[in-house]
Write a protein that binds this DNA or RNA. Structure first.
Length: 277
DNA sequence: TAAGGCCTGCTC
DNA sequence: GAGCAGGCCTTA
């Protein structure tokens, strides 16, 4: 499931490949993937636009287009965007929901999404309201710092850490995998109340999150099942995962077995020995 | 605040 | 063949 590191890896890749390319048109196979505007307007408006740059906020991918437009994509659980230099029929696969064709032999972007949770919006560049971007907190990778982290934590004192870290309005970008990994790395239990953290623990947690995200990006993201980068290849961070998905396996730090519980409605992996409540 | 809905494929 | 996986929005 694409979280901040996966989306950032895709962004870096696409930024290199697509900058300056012109969109020739779109083929839509599953209209439900386009959240705004209607398919006809979407198709007509995107045609002929130049891709000027590609940004990211939290888990949202942002294609800045000529004409002061912005294509916003959220991959949710199983979305992927793969760039191919040509458009052979053999590249069409079962879960392909949309193809963005690029002019002048520039290839195409294949948007696939097994579970159809992902969404695309074509918006005016400044419009943050429709896709929900205005509800995002600062981005974990590009905007957050220790001071911001501390001050925003103060607003969530009575909540358990796991819930706060998953909340995109707190600081944006973390999902279930990287939250569990960050909490393990910092030695803090997912159910700990925010108010119970000492100043030193806040700093430890902040540093752990930054390190986990850095590791995730540098290793190409995490492929548990479906994630693929913009070249269609899996990531490598799953080899470095400490707790997520390791129920019953030995903790790499202490040797006790990793536990799995459902907490805040999410599968939650932790080491009861290393992570104190 | 919690539960339901969106979805498909894989696991038990 | 039921249940689970979970990001995020909507509804109760």
């Amino acid at each position: 499931m694409p979280e901040l590191p996966e989306v950032e890896v895709i962004r870096l890749h696409l930024q290199r490949l697509l900058k300056g390319k012109r969109i020739g048109g779109v083929k839509v196979f599953f209209p439900g993937s386009v959240a705004y505007p209607d398919i006809e307007s979407f198709s007509a408006a995107i045609k002929g636009k130049i891709i000027e740059s590609i940004g990211r906020r939290g888990k949202f991918l942002l294609f800045y287009l000529s004409g002061a437009l912005r294509l916003v994509i959220h991959l949710r659980m199983t979305g992927s965007i793969i760039y191919r230099t040509d458009t052979k029929d053999e590249y069409y696969e079962k879960h392909c929901r949309l193809i963005i064709l690029l002019d002048d032999g520039g290839g195409a972007l294949y948007y696939s999404d097994i579970r159809k949770f992902g969404r695309l919006w074509l918006l005016e560049e400044q419009d943050d309201s429709i896709a929900g971007l205005q509800k995002l907190g600062p981005d974990w990778w590009t905007e957050a710092n220790l001071k911001i982290f501390r001050s925003r934590l103060a607003k969530y004192e009575k909540s358990p850490l796991k819930r706060v870290l998953l909340e995109q309005g707190f600081i944006a970008g973390l999902g279930n995998i990287y939250v569990d990994e960050s909490l393990f790395r910092s030695g803090i239990h997912p159910a700990r109340q925010v108010a119970s953290l000492s100043g030193a623990e806040q700093e430890t947690l902040y540093e752990a999150i930054k390190e986990v995200l850095k590791d995730g990006i540098e290793n190409g993201g995490t492929t548990i099942r479906d994630y693929r980068n913009a070249g269609g290849a899996p990531g490598g961070y799953q080899e470095r995962i400490q707790v997520y998905g390791r129920k019953g396996a030995s903790c790499f730090k202490c040797g006790n077995s990793i536990e799995k519980i459902v907490f805040c409605g999410r599968g939650t992996y932790f080491c009861a020995c290393c992570q104190k409540i």
